[in-house]
Design a protein around this nucleic acid. Sequence first.
DNA 1: TTCCTTTACGCAATCGGTTGTTTTTAATTT
DNA 2: AAATTAAAAACAACCGATTGCGTAAAGGAA
Lengths: 343, 343
Amino acid sequence: MEEHRPVTIYDIAERLNLATSTISRALKDHHSISDKTIKKVKKTAEEMGFVPNTLAAGLRGNKTKTIGVLIPTITQPFLSSLISGIEVTARKSDYSVIIMQSHDSYEDEVNMTKSLYSSRVSGVICSLAMETKDTSHFQQFSNNNIPLVFVDRVPKGYNTFRVVIDNYTAGYKATKHLIDQGCKRIAHLTAGAEFGNLYKERKRGYLDALTDHGLPVKEEWIINLKAMTYDAGVKACQKLFGLKVPPDGLFAPGDILAVSAVQTAKKRGIKVPQDFAVIGFNNDPISEIIEPNISTITHPADKMGKAAANIVIDTIGSRKEEEAKEITFLNTEVLIRESSKRA
Amino acid sequence: MEEHRPVTIYDIAERLNLATSTISRALKDHHSISDKTIKKVKKTAEEMGFVPNTLAAGLRGNKTKTIGVLIPTITQPFLSSLISGIEVTARKSDYSVIIMQSHDSYEDEVNMTKSLYSSRVSGVICSLAMETKDTSHFQQFSNNNIPLVFVDRVPKGYNTFRVVIDNYTAGYKATKHLIDQGCKRIAHLTAGAEFGNLYKERKRGYLDALTDHGLPVKEEWIINLKAMTYDAGVKACQKLFGLKVPPDGLFAPGDILAVSAVQTAKKRGIKVPQDFAVIGFNNDPISEIIEPNISTITHPADKMGKAAANIVIDTIGSRKEEEAKEITFLNTEVLIRESSKRA
DNA sequence: TTCCTTTACGCAATCGGTTGTTTTTAATTT
DNA sequence: AAATTAAAAACAACCGATTGCGTAAAGGAA
């Protein structure tokens, strides 16, 4: 541990009067090396403080045991849990994880794919930037047999692995739950096309649930947000509460919006859930802590990360480029809490 | 983009009838290459879809433009913001970031330092695992001139860079604020020695603030927690409220604890802040959303990440191993919100 | 003893840029 | 035109681990 130049297999070879190839093989328990030699080599390597240079191995073998993760930002509970799931799973198979944040910028995303490719990651897990319409910058991975998995915010019309939830069904279930609680005038917050089809699907589930149960769909109860933020939620809810016929329930496709709705209602003296039932989405930590607790749809970030990482790891090295890549759907559940429970 | 074997500088050299050294230099605007050649090379590289192999460059130069980040977990707001700050700063200088989670396990931390060293990271940023007492596994970085910066949870008696806040002063300021609001019986939650000196320092600030202002220090108002969780906070507060002489204020060294205190108080019909003023720590997102809003001490995660990354980047390559490494203190502020404001 | 297998290990090329040194070419000076 | 110098590009070693192929030694069969 005192050396100022890393110990290499050459150093070990010299010390033991063996060839580097023997050292290399011995360290990996190659069958053509005798047990005696293997033991001796490992012992010496340990003594000398040898640490393999993964760069050299990576260069030679053209594989790096590294997974690149490219996401909009890591400071969202959903995404940090996703990364956590990826990291834990990757590490079990001795993979490292490189993180990059696109901050929802298309340009950054493009540059980062280059950077990831440049560092010869073994696989890539990505949740698309909001700005991204064209996904041709991901072709370099497909073309070079590097597994590519999209999570949550996935592209359309591009044959790659995808790990997602069924947003349509989730939206349907959330709305159905409100209906079951007796809500008749259910509002919904959604987002424009630039957010991809994620929110669109949730909205479709919402609409179908309403019509399936004979409830009215009123345009004024459906508000398009430009950003899924607390403030945007407050503004939207104020608009809702100011309507001549205000809604008595809300399906918010994000917990932070649900929180804003609950708090805005409380400030107006509207009772939650009696006068206004709310269900959110994601099961962010805050939904459990806020009062009243917020009913929500689970969004299994950790599991999704784990699934994505496993797909990458299992796919590395297999040369089935032309095959159709499967889509993995993870289950969501309705978590009924105080904000919607009209017992 | 259609090639199934990456384009190398050899391919470019062959196409242009130049030596690979010329290509390599041209791509980096080396002065000994004519402008005409540089232009030609860059154009051809672009056309052929050349992407440099950072492994090869890293192997040769023994540097990788990669920063290793080793932290307990990324799913804490403070730590994910820290990483975010690191990532953004690193990227500006064209560095990549490798993330590893020790999950507060000493053994994992040791293995991960090996892994980071093995991949020849250019620098390391670390927040220590709770279990870690001995830090000799970090010597491999110091010995090999790899910049090492500890953040927030730093070791004692080890000459490395450190980026921290002044926990003593922060604890003092927080307590002082409660005193200014008229609190006379101020409680405190803290943690055992296994958490390092972070909480100890905050407690020291708390104690000094009390004695400086002639307020009593009562052991029963100081509760040692085994985990800094919501549930642990609830339990501790119930104990506090059950005392013959219950406290009228609380300095919680974490927002999640402050939240638990506020909610436990409310459930008991204790008015916050009138009967019980609370100040937390960290300025986690939740402190702003919960009702009442929670006063807190800012913990500039993003800035700390930025500072740490800058130290790493600035130090890479400079061979001043024997010099004393500076400690960077970042400022904290008291954010006065509803939970402590007795206007 | 000779021939044939195994077993155990060495040789040398390879991965793809980087860089110190040398050679070639072009430009400038006398 | 010859000599001097600067500019441009080539040569070749290098980083450290991996691996196909070759070979020597040891053991067994004929």
